[in-house]
């Protein structure tokens, strides 16, 4: 029991560690303007490292991720807006470079897929529910057929 508690405590502690602690060293980026720093942090969390499949450039130790952080830092310091930085990256690395893909024919399934699944699920449930309700009452013909079956079946067993 005490083992379990200790394990639990450890897990809680681990969960409380800031998520960037295992990622890249961001201390080198100094800002005098807190708004720019906030924008920089937001951007590096949203921009995807092209080299490392599924990491934001904030979390990756890949040299390319560092270069892209440097680039983001430079642009933010020069006063670029969020959209300008994102456009810059997407123009060079494609939609892959941003964790929020634009709505296009190719990405439509990402945006509408969950909604479509919800609708299909609701349809299936309503159809099943309707069928159950319909089949719970027998028509007069069905009742007669059932009664006949009940009478005849013991005879068949012998």
């Amino acid at each position: 029991m005490s083992h379990l508690l200790r394990l639990l405590a450890l897990l809680v502690l681990l969960a409380m560690l800031p998520s960037t602690s295992h990622g890249a060293n961001l201390e080198t980026y100094q800002f005098s303007d807190p708004a720019k720093e906030a924008l920089f942090r937001e951007l590096i969390g949203e921009l995807r490292c092209p080299k490392c499949q599924n990491q934001a450039i904030a979390d990756s130790d890949a040299p390319l991720a560092k270069d892209l952080r440097d680039q983001t830092y430079t642009m933010v310091q020069e006063g670029a807006t969020k959209q300008q930085v994102i456009d810059y990256m997407v123009a060079r690395y494609g939609d892959f470079a941003h964790y929020q893909p634009p709505v296009t024919a190719a990405t439509l399934i990402l945006w509408l897929g969950p909604l479509a699944l919800l609708i299909i699920g609701a349809l299936v449930i309503s159809v099943i529910a309707r069928q159950r309700r319909d089949s719970s009452e027998l028509t007069a013909e069905e009742a007669a057929a059932l009664a006949q079956l009940r009478q005849s079946s013991p005879a068949q067993d012998q």
């Binding site: 092209p50 080299k51 040299p63 390319l64 270069d67 892209l68 680039q71 060079r92 690395y93 494609g94």
Partner: peptide, 13 residues
């Protein structure tokens, strides 16, 4: 040397 030109070309490796 810095990889800046490569970024312009969208090079990732």
């Amino acid at each position: 040397e810095s990889g800046r030109v490569a970024i312009e070309f969208g090079v990732y490796g």
